[in-house]
Design a protein around this nucleic acid. Structure first.
Lengths: 143, 143
DNA sequence: TTTACTGCAAATCTTTTGCATCAAC
DNA sequence: GTTGATGCAAAAGATTTGCAGTAAA
């Protein structure tokens, strides 16, 4: 298990890559780091605005795209019609999303390893299953 | 294996449910039925317009929502930024989508049964995995 | 005749982009 | 001082909605 990078360290990494470490970026990194869940661009923007109200949402989008391209965050579509983001350093897992109550249950990556292996052997397909979203009904709603 | 319903029969079903069977709806049902692949609202609109040019895309969207709510079509997000539709009667299968060349490979539902069983046993979660989309790299692109 | 359905246009909602200014290095 | 990053406003693209007119039953 890789040690979690704190946003300060991610910031240093950015600078070493030749990017500038602006206060906006630091706040965005903090918001990403502090969220337990996956958060949307709007969530991040709201959190950042609490301390620094003039930050524009397009800055959030631009920073997220940069971090995504550098492999520092993952982008997932959990079916809400908007993307959600998650620091890559926090590791991979998948989501069971209840279509009735909206609950999301995290499941470990290992659960999908057998499927991954089958796809590779039978189809030669290398599945990139970070943050797969599986819809259905949770135990409570099935009653 | 359930017999495929022809669009005429789906139309009858609609009428029996108290909905009106308009020419627009018949054309939309035809387009859905004749497509081998999953098609987008825009694809359907283009096809419908070939015979009946004044049909508006909002009618396509409204019809698709009706059919979706009645369980007659399934809606899937194959990662293109737009939804794709498929007649429910044509059966379930899943998609491997190559992130490099964009190829989509259909895989049978049975491949996911072990996973489905695991999710049910370990999490009490009843996965509704019609048209799951799995991203990755196909054998050609892995070269 | 009734009222569900349609076309049109305008509104949504999320994300992207052009551009002049600003600030990190 | 450079030039990459920002804020603003406006554009983009897919989908939705209000409304008055139309046509399926």
């Amino acid at each position: 298990m890789k040690r979690l990078k704190r946003s300060k360290e991610v910031g240093e990494a950015l600078r070493e890559l030749g990017y500038r470490l602006t206060p906006q970026r630091q706040l965005i990194l903090n918001a990403l780091q502090q969220s337990d869940d996956h958060i949307s661009a709007e969530d991040i923007h709201a959190q950042v605005c609490a301390k620094y109200p003039q930050v524009n949402i397009s800055t959030v989008y631009r920073t997220l795209e940069l971090l995504k391209n550098l492999g520092l965050v993952t982008e997932t579509d959990l079916g809400s019609g908007r993307f959600r983001y998650h620091p890559a350093a926090k590791g991979h897992h998948h989501h069971l999303i209840c279509e009735q109550c909206g609950a999301t249950i995290d499941v470990d990556e290992s659960l999908l390893l057998p499927l991954k292996r089958t796809l590779l052997m039978e189809y030669g397909f290398h599945a990139n299953m970070s943050h797969l979203a599986i819809f259905g009904h949770c135990s409570k709603c099935r009653g």
